[in-house]
Design a protein around this nucleic acid. Structure first.
Length: 353
DNA sequence: AAAAACGACAACCGCTGCGTT
DNA sequence: CAACGCAGCGGTTGTCGTTTT
């Protein structure tokens, strides 16, 4: 059953508001308030506008103490941190910034802040690619993956990717001396599906050496005799029940002695989880076949048959990614995971904007 | 100088959640 | 309990000014 339209669209004016309309609306609301009914309000004051439009105009523009533009660095940090933590829930983010509207923050993020953070990496990545190869980035085929897989992965949600990328960047900045600065500890066993995530992320990111994430993989290391295919042929029949998802880890390129394997991987990331049932180790959720968004939104459809990702795992993502700081000490890590609250409590400028 | 491309911002649209009847 | 109406939210589109070609 369809819903009746909120107003008669034929008799409603659209487009930019005139100063007269603004004055009428402002004067009425300041004197009488909204009366708790936006739909009826335009009729009361003789405005040929939809009630929703009036509400939006008031909330985003006419309301007292609204600030426009001129976002401070502190506000940038808050927006970034909250976006990484909770995603595009602009109303919640706006609630942390007095005088700012969700619409304003949303626009600011989409037009400026996002580019400020990600654009530099995009540009440097472009330079890197053009200098090393004329290959179309979209043609870059991960080892061991089928073309169809790659195509499917191009559908990754921008929002999810951005959050993952920013997570990684933040994590790195917070832990400049962490695991990934010790290449000898870097794992090599990356599943093709992890590769695909990375490939997708690479098309929108990095080249910036700070775009790093500490890896949390404890899978067996390949020997020099093992081929890449050998690694990927390891069965993905792991039992993920009872695992706690920690986040997405990533390896960087650079001077790490990865040999031919590393040459083929600029960077890698994977969804990792801390076991509390099997062996207690951190391990990759390597056969996740869906989008990060599906992870974040507690959807299990993307998992291959045989996976047993429990609600406990998915709830971790639902409430925001949880990152362990540096080492694999789960006890210390649990007290260092950060959410929106901890982010807000952290010192400003951590993003280096 | 003109057209195209781009960027910033305002506003709209459609969906969801919730209270009321 | 279902239907309805509303506010609120987030994604998308429209518009206008600026920059680039």
């Amino acid at each position: 059953m369809g819903r009746a339209p909120c107003c008669d669209k034929d008799n409603v004016k659209k487009g930019p508001w005139s100063s007269e309309e603004d004055a009428k609306l402002k004067a009425y609301i300041e004197q009488y308030g909204t009366g708790g009914n936006w739909i009826a309000l335009p009729q009361k004051i003789g405005l040929k506008r939809c009630g929703k439009s009036c509400r939006l105009r008031w909330l985003n523009y006419l309301r007292p103490n609204i600030k426009h533009g001129g976002f401070s660095e502190e506000e940038d940090n808050i927006i970034c941190s909250l976006y990484i933590s909770i995603g595009s829930r602009w109303s919640i983010i706006a609630a942390q910034l007095p005088g700012r509207t969700d619409n304003d923050i949303k626009n600011y993020w989409n037009t400026k802040l996002k580019k400020k953070l990600l654009g530099r990496r995009k540009q440097s990545n472009k330079i890197h690619r053009s200098s090393s190869s004329n290959q179309d980035p979209n043609d870059h085929q991960p080892i061991g993956s089928a073309p169809d897989d790659n195509q499917a992965y191009q559908g990754l949600s921008n929002s999810a990717l951005e959050r993952l990328q920013l997570h990684m960047q933040l994590q790195t900045l917070q832990n400049p001396f962490s695991f990934y600065n010790n290449p000898a500890l870097w794992p090599k066993n990356i599943h093709p599906l992890q590769d695909k995530m990375i490939q997708t992320m690479q098309t929108t990111s990095t080249g910036n050496p700070s775009f790093l994430m500490q890896p949390l993989l404890l899978n067996p290391q390949p020997t020099n005799e093992q081929s890449v295919d050998d690694l990927y042929e390891q069965p993905a029949q792991q039992d993920y029940s009872g695992l706690e998802v920690l986040g997405i880890s990533q390896l960087s390129d650079g001077s790490a002695p990865f040999g031919t394997r590393h040459d083929l991987m600029d960077s890698h990331s994977t969804i990792v989880a801390k076991g509390n049932g099997n062996n207690g180790d951190v391990q990759p959720v390597s056969n996740f076949q869906g989008e990060p968004d599906e992870f974040l939104n507690n959807k299990t459809a993307g998992y291959a048959q045989g996976d047993q990702m429990g609600d406990q795992v998915l709830d971790c993502f639902k409430d925001g990614l949880i990152w362990w700081p540096t080492e694999l000490d789960a006890n210390s890590a649990s007290s260092n995971s950060w959410d929106s609250a901890s982010v807000l409590q952290s010192n400003g400028g951590v993003l280096g904007l």
